[in-house]
Design a protein around this nucleic acid. Structure first.
Lengths: 233, 233
DNA sequence: CTCTGAATTTATGCATACATTAACAAACGC
DNA sequence: GCGTTTGTTAATGTATGCATAAATTCAGAG
């Protein structure tokens, strides 16, 4: 096997990508990292200059971002990074809660291999370690991996794609509120319980546990965003 | 109020739409109506000629269709209308079942106005009438309206958008199997029961009824597609 | 007859040109 | 001063040109 980097893209990989694809990834990255904050506007020409390409691939990237629900294209004002209000977060979490609870049930009913279970356990372990060392960024990354893995284990690609899209929409707001909320100790407990339910192939319990887990997280985020008002978003 | 047509697009409306938007709608329409059957390929130039515009707006439309999950863009072969296999249908219905069951519960808990409830009842009535007069196309249209209205009543726009997208992916296969399955008498009963549960604001029952309803429909479609093999798709 | 490889065709990806029209600003009338 | 109107600017939507690279075809060797 040639030396293939497992994640991200190597230089040569990036090279062979189309400009439109590079533009899409670059812009999405800027947005998800809050480097282009909510409300920012970016003209096609500006983006083209910034990324060193012509307007055409930029337009194509913007169209995709608009369908992803992270920007809005306003005919004479370029693309505008969409703010995520408390109401938006409510919508997103209502759907995420439904889908991930279903995912948990599906995975529990179907059963998982020892390695797959270990993957979930590893993520939980990382979350506990991160929490012990007070590293919230690491915790968020591990939490994200856990949820991502759970959904992946369903094998349902549409489910994966939709959950990813919604998670990305919520990502910026989640990052901004990461340090404003109580330490997620309950979260780790929930995840451990879910892993047990999956190991026991108890679909009923898995659904209930994960449903409560996501509902709690959603309520907290919505309340936080509400209390923040629209200072950030 | 100026004479605004309530649905569809008037001539002048169509006129003021961008070519890219017209291309998107036209192509999507061709696909959903099976005029471009699954597996069809269409080059940019062909589509441009067909719709009387240049390749640029066609490209933009194709990009959107690809993100909608109805076509695949294959670099030297134009766009290809994606087939919907039994496994795809399984994926789609698993997600739809989860989301619509949640929608039913949300709507029941929230409660609906008399007019909204009547809208649901009207759709059920149309389905019964269509079934009585053996008009399956009308039945399918009314069924679609019922499900659409149910989701709309949640007020969750993201939920609506996702359900619409999945329904569109499933639409062609559903149409093809419409006449191959037993008459949907149970379906009408399910809908009537759901309406009652919503009227009674019984979220629990609403979820259960609609979950079973969608699960049944999904199983039937998957079995049908399986038995068809890949003749059509 | 089959397989290989080179030449040709052609669809695409991107850049660029251009017309359109919305946003902005300045000037004018009230 | 203030509202209106007109003129200007500039961002977009679409068309088009062009280089690239993939697919196909055809020829020739085995």
């Amino acid at each position: 096997m040639p030396p293939t980097p497992k994640d991200g893209a190597s230089q040569s990989d990036l090279d062979r990508l189309s400009s439109a694809e590079r533009a899409y990834r670059a812009l999405k990255n800027l947005i998800l990292c809050n480097e282009l904050p909510a409300g920012s506007q970016l003209l096609e020409q500006e983006a083209a200059l910034r990324l060193g390409m012509s307007r055409t691939p930029i337009r194509e990237a913007m169209i995709r971002l608009e369908q992803d629900g992270v920007v809005e294209i306003r005919p004479r004002h370029g693309m505008r990074v969409l703010p995520v209000s408390a109401a938006d977060m409510r919508e997103i979490y209502d759907v995420l809660t439904s889908l991930e609870a279903t995912a948990a049930e599906m995975v529990a009913r179907k059963g998982v291999t020892a390695e797959e279970l270990q993957g979930l356990k590893d993520a939980v372990g990382e979350m506990e370690a991160a929490l012990a060392s007070d590293n919230l960024d690491d915790w968020a990354a591990a939490d994200h991996r856990f949820h991502e893995l759970l959904v992946k284990l369903t094998g349902n690609q549409r489910l994966q794609q939709i959950v990813t899209q919604l998670s990305e929409q919520a990502h910026r707001a989640r990052m901004l509120t990461l340090r404003l909320r109580p330490k997620p100790v309950g979260s780790n407990r929930d995840h451990a319980m879910l892993v047990d339910a999956i190991a026991a192939r108890d679909g009923e319990a898995a659904r209930r546990i994960h449903y409560e887990h996501r509902a709690k997280a959603g309520d907290m985020l919505v309340r936080l965003l509400d209390s923040l008002g629209f200072k950030q978003f």
